[in-house]
Design a protein around this nucleic acid. Structure first.
Length: 271
DNA sequence: CCATGTACCTGAAGGC
DNA sequence: TGCCTTCAGGTACATG
């Protein structure tokens, strides 16, 4: 499910709901969701801040960190505890973990496929050591992006999907960014010159920012903290458009497997 | 270093 | 209707 824009949407909404709350207890519903040894250590800790690097949500607590990854189908919802839970549809069919706050409100984690994780750690580096800078980090520049690309023989889609260099892109926004920049997903990184690298970097920035403005993309499972779907799926140019005409040239959009993922591109516009 | 396959899970969709 | 296969916003790990 969620890539950077979906995670950003969720935390923007969640932040005012949970910052300052004190954890009373955590109820693990599915035993693998909470990764740690001692959920008792969470009692009495306050949520000091809600941050994000790539697709990772970082809850800064009084004495430790709770790092959340939604993976494919994870959803976070807030239950104010007064009976006014706002979640729509069947948002809570697959409840996997509950954070109970001392004021009676709760943070609910729903996750159909059970891939999502809450990592309780003293040092965020334990989870984030192989995660690069956030794709929307203003300190990143096209020049630094080019430096990362220029000596790699890996296909450019695989590069964008790896969280190790730039964090936050997933399958949808990698395909959409490559289309916008006119680059074939299997092109080797080291064949991209500085000018083309800048075009790709600008495309990544545009695609991600547009998706944040549209509250993320909903294909099936993704919902924001209120249970609402995103609107950005209406702006897809290639993703899930196999066989349909390219908006630039009319050629049928192709679907192949690249970097192990279904990959959509225009065989004429993307070289 | 790089590509590919498998594992982790559930459910929707398509073919027969 | 039912059965079987494939696929899905992700990542970690094993194998050539």
């Amino acid at each position: 499910m969620p890539e950077l824009p979906e995670v950003e949407t969720v935390i923007r909404e969640l932040k005012p709901m949970i910052v300052g709350k004190e954890i009373d207890s955590v109820t693990p519903v599915w035993f693998k969701t909470l990764v740690n040894r001692s959920e008792r250590l969470l009692r009495g800790q306050r949520i000091e801040a809600v941050e994000r690097i790539g697709k990772y949500i970082i809850l800064r607590l009084s004495r430790s960190f709770l790092i959340i990854h939604l993976r494919m189908t994870g959803r976070l919802h807030f239950d104010p505890g007064n009976g006014a839970l706002q979640v729509k549809e069947q948002g809570l069919n697959h409840l996997r973990l509950i954070v109970n706050f001392t004021d009676g409100s709760k943070l609910l984690f729903n996750d159909t496929r059970k891939f999502g994780r809450f990592y309780h750690v003293d040092d965020p580096k334990r989870v984030l050591q192989n995660v690069g800078d956030d794709a929307l980090d203003p300190r990143l520049t096209a020049e630094r992006f080019y430096e990362m690309l220029k000596n790699r023989k890996i296909g450019v889609k695989a590069f964008l999907l790896s969280q190790r260099w730039i964090a936050g892109l997933g399958n949808i926004y990698a395909d959409e960014s490559l289309f916008r920049a006119g680059i074939h997903p299997e092109r080797k990184c080291n064949t991209i010159d500085l000018v083309k690298a800048k075009e790709l970097w600008d495309a990544v920035q545009f695609i991600l920012k547009q998706a944040v403005e549209n509250m993320g993309s909903t294909i099936s499972d993704y919902r924001d903290a209120y249970g609402n779907p995103g609107k950005n799926q209406l702006y897809f140019k290639v993703y899930r458009r196999a066989g349909e005409p390219c908006f630039n040239c009319g050629t049928a959009i192709k679907k192949i497997r690249a970097a192990g993922r279904g990959t959509h591109f225009c065989p004429v516009c993307q070289t």
